[in-house]
Amino acid sequence: MATIFHLALASDWAAAQQTGEYAVSTRGRTLAEEGFIHASRGDQWPGVRAAFYADVDEPLLLLRIDTDLLDVPVVDEPAAPGAAETFPHIYGPLPTTAVVRVLPLSPAGRPAAAATAPSPAPSTSTSTSTSTSTFAAVYFREMFANAGLILLVLAVGFAGILLGVALGGEAGPGIGGITGTALGLALATLLYRRRAKRGSP
């Protein structure tokens, strides 16, 4: 996944969510007027913000775009003829589904405290490492939580067998095991649903 960024006025983004497409090139210019949508890499958007959006009064957003979700070309081009630095330009409307995160910006141009800022480094290795470690943490947390629920079912089922043995009778252990397993499954299901409702293990 290649990630690029675009600075958007909150009102423009709200309008795009109604239509499913964002078609503003840059501040005061549409895609139709400019021919492409201006975008930035992770190390470029703060400079663009300072140069072109420092005096914006209305809420400003940073759109994080996954280029793999675009169905239009993205071309690295100089910002001006003869300039050495290139910027990604999106040659077509931006589907709202390609925007994987929307970060509100504070007046200073940094993402607001409620949002996590993307790494400004040009290399994607840091962000990839962070994403991988976050995924791994969630994966192992879920795996151990589910293993715990399975152990709970087995423990309650085994307790049912022991209770059946204690009560005696030929069918006691079988009935106790079935009853214990059913009780364990019901308890595990309840715990699983409560954990899912909270949104975390």
Results as ranks from 00 to 15, higher is better:
residue 95 P to F: 12
residue 97 T to L: 12
residue 98 A to K: 04
residue 98 A to Y: 01
residue 100 V to R: 10
residue 101 R to I: 00
residue 101 R to D: 14
residue 103 L to F: 05
residue 104 P to I: 05
residue 106 S to C: 06
residue 106 S to A: 15
residue 106 S to I: 02
residue 109 G to Q: 07
residue 110 R to F: 07
residue 110 R to S: 11
residue 112 A to N: 04
residue 113 A to Q: 13
residue 115 A to Q: 03
residue 121 A to K: 12
residue 121 A to V: 11
residue 122 P to L: 15
residue 122 P to H: 13
residue 123 S to A: 13
residue 125 S to I: 14
residue 126 T to P: 07
residue 126 T to G: 14
residue 127 S to G: 04
residue 128 T to Q: 14
residue 128 T to Y: 07
residue 129 S to W: 10
residue 131 S to I: 04
residue 132 T to L: 11
residue 132 T to V: 13
residue 132 T to N: 12
residue 133 S to F: 04
residue 135 F to T: 13
residue 136 A to F: 11
residue 137 A to Y: 09
residue 137 A to T: 13
residue 138 V to D: 12
residue 138 V to A: 10
residue 140 F to N: 05
residue 143 M to T: 11
residue 143 M to A: 14
residue 145 A to Y: 13
residue 145 A to T: 08
residue 145 A to V: 05
residue 146 N to D: 08
residue 146 N to M: 06
residue 146 N to H: 08
residue 147 A to E: 06
residue 148 G to D: 07
residue 148 G to N: 07
residue 149 L to H: 03
residue 149 L to N: 01
residue 151 L to R: 06
residue 151 L to H: 10
residue 151 L to M: 10
residue 152 L to N: 06
residue 154 L to G: 08
residue 156 V to F: 00
residue 157 G to E: 02
residue 159 A to N: 05
residue 159 A to Q: 02
residue 161 I to E: 03
residue 162 L to T: 07
residue 164 G to H: 00
residue 164 G to K: 00
residue 165 V to K: 10
residue 169 G to R: 03
residue 172 G to S: 02
residue 173 P to K: 02
residue 173 P to C: 06
residue 174 G to Q: 04
residue 175 I to K: 00
residue 175 I to E: 00
residue 177 G to S: 05
residue 179 T to Y: 02
residue 180 G to Q: 00
residue 181 T to V: 07
residue 182 A to T: 14
residue 182 A to M: 06
